[in-house]
Write a protein that binds this DNA or RNA. Structure first.
Lengths: 122, 122
DNA sequence: CGGAATCCTGCGAGATACTG
DNA sequence: CAGTATCTCGCAGGATTCCG
């Protein structure tokens, strides 16, 4: 964050920073999937649904790097890896909840506006 | 929104829905740029900084379609087009503020976690 | 000034196959 | 089970040019 920037500009950059990090297709869904508690790799995969192993691997690694999830390995056969949300990860999921509430509250308005717009234009 | 889905799943889908709509590179920045009041096309362009006319045109049109901004045309020479945030657009910018606060609060933690992670791995 | 039309590019992300 | 390694493709988004 640039301390010399004006508050509003800082806000703007901050938001776009998180969005570019968190606004991808899977990150939030994975975080939400982990809210209930620790999950193993394929457990998360099942919960998210539609995600490829590759994207899940990437997403989890990125989240681990950012301190959002913790990775615990048990060296058995078959191997087990548990993923757990950190407090930071939880706080992100709370923010996500806020987004979800906004979406639920205004989804109808948006749909209507689109229909109206589309009917007026071609 | 699917009413038959469980609450958590609904949340999850709702979040990813908004994110896929609002999580692009420019939407939020344009909304934030309009918080101060009505702006003309190139005014917004200057405020956002780094955006191409094409992307600004697209972003504004999408926001108009969703009922987030209003477009008012004055047929003079030179032509003038004013863009204004609707109440719905304002409410989105408030949600964005929330995201910004989260980012500001945890940016340091994330940075530290990344440095730590990168030093332990390659 | 405020766009529309066109071209071009990199990256997000899916599918598949292989490994420990 | 939990990954890694390629290969591929679509599309977000940049640059440039043209129009009323």
């Amino acid at each position: 964050m640039d301390v010399t920037a004006k508050p509003e500009e800082a806000d703007c950059r901050a938001v776009s920073e998180i969005l570019s990090r968190v606004g991808d297709k899977w990150t939030i869904q994975v975080v939400v999937a982990l809210r209930g508690g620790s999950q193993r790799f394929n457990g998360v995969k099942r919960r998210v649904g539609g995600i490829s192993q590759q994207m899940l691997t990437r997403t989890l690694k990125a989240l681990e790097r950012d301190g959002m999830v913790e990775r615990a390995v048990r060296h058995n056969t078959p191997p087990q890896v548990e993923y757990t949300l950190t407090p930071l990860g939880y706080s992100l999921s709370d923010t996500a909840r806020h987004l979800a509430e906004w979406a639920a509250a205004h989804h109808g308005e948006i749909q209507d506006s689109r229909l109206d717009f589309d009917s007026r234009h071609g």
